[in-house]
Design a protein around this nucleic acid. Structure first.
Lengths: 255, 255
DNA sequence: AAGTGGTCTAGACCACCGT
DNA sequence: CGGTGGTCTAGACCACTTT
């Protein structure tokens, strides 16, 4: 075949991006990620075709495809054969599938409902501010909710959000909460949760927790402390989940 | 360019494999996985070059590369630029990195040591046999060990193995246990752990557990119930880990 | 210098989807 | 039917490692 490489810049550069480094397909991935993070392409909208992106970025379709495959693995885009490539939008199903790991004793998926107990705004503690990358005393929203699975109410959650990123976040917004929170974050505030880290521990139930979850104080509970990050790797949510593991498990897959 | 497709079989077939289905690169992945599972290529040995595999399988190098990339993501092979492609061998580092998720309170990795308390062989219970895919009453090895991290001994493990797959597995073999168990499984028995599933719960410490872990009976412990599978997706190990979470956490990454 | 995997290209045809 | 992504090929050159 004809030599394509001879007409390329020597290495590590691409049109319009002086600070590019590494393989071309990774540069493409970074450029596209940045555009998604900046919201230039909104969730649910269609991207240019692979041919179009190749022309736009000045590279071959094969290279663009490699970048798109990486973005698809990170669940930032979705390809639909015969139709096109779309910016991934959080749906309740997706949020539950990727960010909800609680199952029943047979390790089958369960679908929770939500009951908001409280929602108020106040100053972050020093530790909270540090975790969220906020200045001292900046405001945060605090949500407390109970989650039910069938007849049981085995999950108690406390959620912390930087108020600056979620203006106007309040109880009325949560009342008709038919969707998952992450769907709400994206639709109402343009915040896309892309990754999360969870630290798990066993704790003894306190007075209030025992009352809400219907067990005796001191009973063992699974505590799940989550840091959730957006497309730009900013920590945008802290969440502590308490799970009564009499009838449920937290499922992790190692591969 | 020249038309390569016209000389290929119409669809879904490849030389020497009548039951092939789906894309060619996936057939290649399956064929290679099968050969690895059968032990035709031993861990640590070098595979044929990409050109060689392409000739062997009757497809282009691009297609072979796609299959190899998938195998590399599954950590079954390792590519080394300028040298070749090798069958992945479990090392202690790999085993700890992929199958050990316990960290300290700052979510930093820790390296555990091991103290075997007991190792004996006996009949499996009905439930154990079902999980391991064994017949009623088949024999299993049972190992109990304490794992230490620095001065602390926060981990108590009970491990169950089908005796048929691990003949001669006994205490003397474990005494000089400098390597991780999964390294031993692979080196001594040709069993490669490829995937695992863990169900987590909070439980109250029993008498013996409390004594071994140095806490009071009834204290909350994190219970991690693991099913480990080999390359052929057979369940080859059951493991229940009890973790004292006063100074450690189980870390999970969601992405 | 020789050989390996890593990157990138160009272009064919297939499978799927909407009109 | 026309357009999209999905698959597959052939081959060039680059970067790395060993001889």
């Amino acid at each position: 075949m004809r030599d394509g490489a001879a007409r390329r810049p020597p290495r590590g550069t691409v049109a319009g991006d002086g600070r590019a480094r590494g393989p071309l397909y990774r540069q493409a991935e970074e450029i596209l990620t940045r555009r998604l993070a900046e919201g230039l392409w909104r969730p649910g909208t269609q991207l240019p075709t692979e041919q179009g992106l190749a022309a736009l970025l000045g590279m071959s379709t094969g290279t663009v495809r490699k970048a798109l495959a990486a973005l698809e693995r990170r669940r930032l885009i979705e390809k639909r054969q015969g139709i096109g490539t779309f910016v991934a939008a959080h749906t309740s199903e997706r949020a539950l599938f990727h960010f909800f790991r609680i199952v029943d004793l047979d390790r089958r998926k369960v679908a929770p409902s939500s009951l908001v107990l409280d929602c108020r705004t106040g100053a972050a503690t020093t530790e909270e501010a540090a975790l969220l990358g906020l200045g001292a005393g900046e405001e945060v929203h605090r949500v407390k909710r109970l989650r039910t699975i069938g007849e049981a109410a085995p999950i108690l959650e406390r959620i912390l959000l930087p108020a600056a990123l979620f203006p106007g976040f309040a109880l009325p917004l949560l009342k008709p909460m038919t969707d998952e929170l992450y769907v709400l974050y994206q639709r109402e505030y343009g915040v896309t949760i892309a990754r999360a880290e969870e630290g798990l521990a066993a704790v003894a139930a306190g007075e209030e927790e025992a009352r809400l979850l219907g067990l005796v104080p001191g009973a063992p509970l699974l505590e799940i402390a989550r840091l959730a990050r957006d497309l730009s790797e900013r920590t945008v949510e802290l969440r502590v989940t308490l799970l009564d593991t009499r009838a449920h498990r937290y499922l992790a897959v190692l591969e």
